[in-house]
Amino acid sequence: MAAVAGSETIRRGRAPGRVGNAIFRGVSSSAGITIVVLLGLVAAFLVYRAVPALLATREELADVGFMRGQSLLGYVAPLAFGTVLSSVIALVVAVPLSIGIALFISHYAPRRLAQGLGYLVDLLAAIPSVIFGLWGLQFLQPLVGPLFQWLSDHMGWFPPFSGYVGPAKNIMTAGLVLAVMILPIITATIREVFLQTPRLHEEASLALGATRWEMIRQAVLPFGRSGIISAAMLGMGRALGETMAVLMVLAPGFAMNLYVLRPGQHQSIAANIANQFPEAGALGADVLIATGLFLFLLTFAVNLAARWVINRRAEFSGAN
């Protein structure tokens, strides 16, 4: 110890690591501030551009051709409904599938297969959405058509499945394409969470005489619960805002119903903006941006709800 010169006494001035510490604090704080500012700017833009549409009188709005004489709220409501419906379909399909894939990768597959499969799933995330749209249009649609027909014929007593009309340019097909699109992000997130399950808890379960599946239900799934919800929210965020694929696959409509197999019933906010924007006038553009603001708020609300669900059982999360 004494061999190090000057180490016997406490030195005056700042300790050597101080500068690096200050720099790092600056960098990470500004990164944190940047995201808040960016979000604020986007929100401000949306609000600023939406105000004319929000304040416009009925007569002024009547001049906007694509609104067909509706009030702003009356125009947004079916779009929001279609947006949520397509996302819910996507989540219902994608989340269980993702959990299955993630479990297979994290707990069942031999290591090398798991790795390959992991890469494959990640690769799905790199495909542009326009390709997914084309795929949905050219490949998925003819494929699911007969299936939907069968569903409609045999389970038509269940109203949502009634009245299928081909080709399958309905919200169900759109939801399925969205499901495939959000699969990678959900799977990747859940897989990471499952891999984080403490070995101690897995062993506790196995030592009680649990089979692998029982161990997964006892230790892995409960531990991953908040992660699964977060992953689903990430996926839902993407599904809510997805434009291109929905635009290409879905025959739009402005109804609010659950006839998921009928074409021309629903439309999503994002796809509608893309669809109408090129021909929209000044106030028309503002109206579309107002619907965008609504989508922004919707996504925000969904995320808040998810936070709330997670925090409600924070005590039992395993994080303490």
């Binding site: 403490p198 101690l200 808890h201 062993e203 506790a204 379960s205 030592a207 006892q218 230790a219 409960p222 531990f223 619960r225 039992f316 999360s317 395993g318 994080a319 303490n320």
Partner: peptide, 10 residues
């Protein structure tokens, strides 16, 4: 086990 490992989610 060596370290107490009650299931935290239960």
């Amino acid at each position: 086990f060596q370290r107490p490992n009650p299931f935290p989610t239960m």
